[in-house]
Computed example of a mutant assay.
Amino acid sequence: MNLNSKWIHIITFLACFIGAGVLILLFPELKKDQPTTLGTAGVFLTLYGVTFAIIELVRLKSASFLANKEARRVFDIATNLVTAREIIECQTKIEIAVEAIDEKRLIPSASLCSIVKLYSQVFHHEVGDDNSEHRKHRSIVQAYYISGQLPPKSSGNTKKALLGIAGHLAQLQGSTNNFAEHIK
Rank of each mutant, 00 (worst) to 15 (best):
residue 150 L to Y: 11
residue 40 T to I: 04
residue 183 I to D: 03
residue 91 Q to W: 05
residue 72 R to M: 07
residue 94 I to W: 02
residue 29 E to M: 02
residue 113 C to R: 11
residue 50 V to A: 12
residue 103 E to W: 04
residue 105 R to Q: 15
residue 152 P to V: 14
residue 149 Q to Y: 10
residue 12 T to N: 14
residue 134 H to V: 00
residue 170 A to Y: 05
residue 6 K to V: 14
residue 27 F to K: 12
residue 153 K to A: 12
residue 94 I to C: 09
residue 142 Q to N: 07
residue 21 G to T: 13
residue 117 K to F: 06
residue 173 Q to E: 05
residue 71 A to Q: 11
residue 27 F to A: 07
residue 148 G to A: 07
residue 82 V to Q: 14
residue 116 V to G: 01
residue 129 D to Y: 00
residue 154 S to C: 08
residue 155 S to P: 06
residue 158 T to C: 15
residue 60 L to Q: 15
residue 157 N to P: 11
residue 129 D to L: 00
residue 96 I to V: 12
residue 183 I to G: 04
residue 149 Q to L: 13
residue 125 H to M: 02
residue 6 K to S: 14
residue 179 F to E: 01
residue 126 E to H: 01
residue 76 D to R: 11
residue 77 I to L: 09
residue 97 A to W: 04
residue 81 L to S: 06
residue 141 V to L: 09
residue 142 Q to S: 08
residue 179 F to N: 02
residue 110 A to K: 09
residue 108 P to N: 09
residue 36 T to S: 03
residue 42 G to Q: 08
residue 15 A to M: 11
residue 173 Q to D: 05
residue 46 T to P: 09
residue 9 H to R: 07
residue 76 D to F: 04
residue 20 A to S: 11
residue 35 P to E: 06
residue 31 K to W: 02
residue 22 V to W: 12
residue 181 E to K: 04
residue 3 L to I: 15
residue 48 Y to H: 08
residue 47 L to Q: 07
residue 1 M to K: 14
